[in-house]
Design a protein around this nucleic acid. Structure first.
Lengths: 105, 105
DNA sequence: TTTATTAATCGTAACATTGCTATTAAACAA
DNA sequence: TTGTTTAATAGCAATGTTACGATTAATAAA
């Protein structure tokens, strides 16, 4: 939000928007799909997979990590990333009721 | 995307990102929740409900309409907006498999 | 120790988003 | 017709996002 009018929304509305925002870029969607596909993955593989420069991938990974959707484990000079299944599930607890408003209302 | 690298993603990845992006602002989340709540609503009511200026709401409505998630019917000087249930369902066909990757993979 | 490898961070340019005021357009009412 | 109401559009300022090259940091290998 450009102008801070965050007090006008419920925490649920803000949470939905935050999760949605991080899914709102195809590079991050691709990263997440790939992490589900191969279970765990070092940063360098994602650079090749997605096709963006290494600092750009690092930046996207940072955002995903910040929301708790992925976690990274240092292994030597590499960092191995994977989905945080528990937090992914918590994300769904927020997002699914919103997407399912058409059947619950 | 700032630099057009859209050819590097699948249409599924781009579609997910587009839907997510429109959910990535709490004002639009609020508008959609409200439309589900009361079924149909004139623009002016949404201005009061959300608490942003009328042109700002119009802009958010335009984005939601552009993705097909809502539709507006002119009624005199007012415009009555409602959820496009059919397209909402199509959106879910795209988004749910992504959110459910944790149980399908 | 020196060199190589890998990823994070810094700094910055290009671009996109948000929100507003002012204005316009369209329909109705007097 | 003239005025009123309602929403869309235009234009703009402030802010946020994205992507990259250059650099740094940390670990491993020679």
């Amino acid at each position: 939000m450009t102008i801070a009018k965050t007090e006008m929304y419920t925490s649920n509305q803000k949470e939905i928007a935050l999760f949605a925002k991080v899914f709102g870029h195809p590079a991050r969607v691709t990263i997440l799909q790939h992490l589900f596909e191969i279970d765990a993955c070092v940063c360098g593989d994602l650079v090749n997979e997605v096709g963006l420069a290494q600092p750009t991938i690092s930046q996207h990974l940072k955002e995903l990590k910040h929301l708790g959707l992925i976690k990274g484990k240092v292994e030597g000079t590499s960092v191995c990333y994977c989905i945080d299944k528990e937090n992914w599930s918590k994300m769904k607890d927020v997002m699914l009721p919103f997407l399912n408003l058409d059947i619950t209302k």
